[in-house]
Amino acid sequence: MGKHSMKERKFSYLLVLPAAALISIFTIYPLLYAVRTSLYDIVLTMPFIRPYVGAGNYRDVLGSYYFRGSLFNTLVYAGISVCLVTLIGLGVSFLLNAPFKLSGALRVLILFPWAIPFVVSGVIWKWIFNSSYGVFNGLLYTLGIIDSYVSWLSHPFYAKLCLVTAHVWKEMPFASILFLAGLQAVPRELFDACKVDGGTSWSIFRYVIFPLLRPVLLVIVIYETMIGITTFDLVYVMTGGGPGDSTSLLSWYAYAETFKFLNLGKGAALSIILALLILAIIIGYIRVIRLEEVY
């Protein structure tokens, strides 16, 4: 038996090796490289001077006005997006689970926005919110809600709403399909038994459905938080961080610092901070809702 399991162990390592190797080569080395870069003052406009500054970049970044602004923007953006995606997704999943003729078609059609790239979602919504000929302006104008067209994307507050709209439109379907899969796992008899016992709709939801949806809720919230905090494509396409820096999210800020101002050291420090932020939030979630089954 011992010999057999020895062979089995070798075989297991062989199976895992290719995947593990690919991932290690392209995550560990780049990560170390990024950490090293963040400790030097590397600005590409001054290519021959790159002094070691230790935590200097981190201190600069954390103390800067732009960082605090974009951190705040990011947390608000991610918070609102995650809430909307989760709540609307949950509501829509009940609709998809209802027994009526259209629901089959609805289940297929709803996946469309989720499958398309963020870039494409951004382009579509940018055109919809266009200040001179956008259909959103046209709709409000025709309904008499506005007297003249509004340039939504040039307004600090509305621009954020536009981004959130495009984000929720793209991400909500995924959440609703995951919730639907969860709802389908709830046996019909449970609903009926509750009704017989005189339970209200709310108590059925609270005590029967919700506990069963908890694992999927955790998956959705973690995944959506990550997507929300690292949002970059939509900002790139729709607003370019503007107007001013009102839609400058952390990823955008790190990108601009690195590729527009060519300050690699600061950009790397920002990226590391972003990675740590995500790690902290996910650990927080897992503590709050215990992850029952990793595998």
Binding site: M226, S251, A254, T258, G267, S271
Partner: peptide, 10 residues
């Protein structure tokens, strides 16, 4: 979970 931005430059 590593954000793309963190390893983009390297």
């Amino acid at each position: 979970l590593l954000p793309a931005m963190a390893i983009a430059i390297p």
